[in-house]
Simulated scan of single mutants.
Amino acid sequence: MAHILVIDDENDICKLIERALAKDGYTVTTKNSAINLTAQDFKTYDLVLLDVMMPEVDGFSLCRSIRGDVDCPILFLTAKSMEQDMIDGFSLGADDYIKKPFSLLELRARVAAHLRREHRERHQSLTQGIYRFDLSAKEITVEAVPGKPEKILLTKSEYAICEMLVRNRGQVFSLEHILETVFGFDTESDIAAIRVHIKNIRNKFSKYTENPIETVWGVGYKWR
């Protein structure tokens, strides 16, 4: 069963989350501080729940420092509700947000949805132009310079959106359809998260070539 790390400076919240997730059979480790944590400390975890507002080392700072070496989903716990905060979190590599106060049913549903995506089997690769999708490793490499492939650093959610669009190249999808296809019908996320993910994907692809994700105004998005 999955091993989940919860980092929140409020011990009562840690214990509440631990009890809730233990009901689903998960192993849960809790920490009340992010001080002195390095990427190596996250290698054994399948998912991280990370509080944004913590003293000394906040969730944003920790995510920024570890994301390049930590591959598991990172879900922020935050009382903030402004869109700019969500944009900041996604740009640092977060996969999702859970806003405080949250229901335990919502928490369990979000965690289960991300873990299902994480363990979904993939067995092949596909190439679209200069982009190569490794469907097993869930990675995209680009060969802008012949013979010199370069990995594009995407979050799990960003990769899932790209794979969904490239598998259906040329077909236009609404934000709602992308949300349901990538995150599932039981997701608690909303279309604002998809919009932010696509903005971040475009930023990461922009250095290589014309952006492959095209906006069809009034309808949605497609892979060129």
Results as ranks from 00 to 15, higher is better:
D69F: 14
A144G: 13
I178Q: 09
H119Q: 10
R224A: 12
D46M: 00
E10M: 10
I66V: 12
S136R: 07
A34L: 12
E188K: 11
L165Q: 01
F205S: 06
F76D: 01
D9E: 07
T27G: 08
D85F: 09
N168E: 12
S33K: 09
R108T: 15
G184K: 00
V216I: 13
K138L: 08
E150L: 11
E56Q: 14
G218N: 02
W223Q: 02
Q171P: 03
T29L: 02
S189W: 00
D85L: 03
E83K: 14
Y221E: 00
L165T: 07
K31F: 09
S206F: 07
R120I: 14
A192W: 01
H3W: 08
Q124A: 15
I17D: 01
K100Q: 06
F185P: 04
F185V: 14
K156P: 04
Q128K: 08
F42E: 02
D41N: 11
V172F: 04
D71H: 11
R108M: 14
A137S: 11
D85S: 14
E18C: 13
G170F: 02
G170Q: 06
A79W: 03
M164S: 09
I35Y: 07
R110F: 12
A39F: 07
L47Y: 00
E143W: 01
Y26C: 13
R202I: 15
K156C: 13
I87V: 14
I4F: 00
D24G: 04
D95T: 12
K43I: 10
V142K: 02
V142R: 01
I161T: 05
N32L: 10
H197I: 15
V219F: 07
D24S: 09
A20C: 09
G89P: 02
V216Y: 04
L165E: 01
G147R: 04
Y97N: 06
Y159K: 05
A144P: 05
D8H: 04
A79L: 05
P149R: 03
F42Q: 06
P55G: 09
L37G: 11
P149K: 04
N36Q: 08
E210I: 15
G218W: 03
L21V: 04
K138G: 02
D186K: 04
L47D: 01
T127M: 10
R167E: 15
C162H: 02
K99N: 07
L92T: 09
R19G: 13
L175C: 10
S65G: 14
T215P: 11
R169H: 15
E180Q: 08
Y208C: 11
A22W: 02
Q40A: 15
E210F: 11
L165G: 03
L126S: 09
K222N: 07
M54C: 10
I178P: 02
T29C: 11
S103A: 09
A192K: 06
G25Y: 06
Y208N: 07
D58W: 05
H114Y: 13
M82W: 06
L50D: 03
F90A: 08
L153F: 10
E163V: 15
K222F: 04
Q171C: 07
S61L: 10
M86K: 06
R122G: 15
